[in-house]
Amino acid sequence: MSARLPDEIRPVMENGVPVVIATCSKDGIPNVSIVSEVFYVDPATIALSFQFFSKTIKNVRENPRASIILNDIPAGRRWVLRVEYDHSETEGPIFDAMDLQIEAIASATGMSGIFKLRSADLYRVLGVETIARS
């Protein structure tokens, strides 16, 4: 089961608005975090940064299913992605691009130097839907 990201989602992924990610441990304890950005890799893959050991990082390595929400505030619309953790990369073009972007975001929010990218975590997209004010 897989899905393709529509072209119109790319600007939302790059709008700088924080993203919500939900995961669940193998013991069944849910976890929800707000992260700075999700990265577009290709129409079937997104990436999240692994900067600190966190419950999200731990959870997806024992239960790969996750849910992500992207915010498009001007359009009053949220994008819901169902994803599955696939693998991590610690070098290469995806890693380098994310590293650069993270430092740019950190600098813009007064948190320069705090964040160091450990890996780019790649997720397969299983489903995409939008939620707008009804």
């Binding site: 939900a22 995961t23 669940c24 849910p30 976890n31 929800v32 239960n63 299913r65 849910s67 929400i69």
Partner: peptide, 12 residues
């Protein structure tokens, strides 16, 4: 917030 279903799939 987040819940999860019986298959451990999280939902926001």
């Amino acid at each position: 917030a987040c819940t999860r279903d019986r298959d451990l799939v999280p939902r926001i």
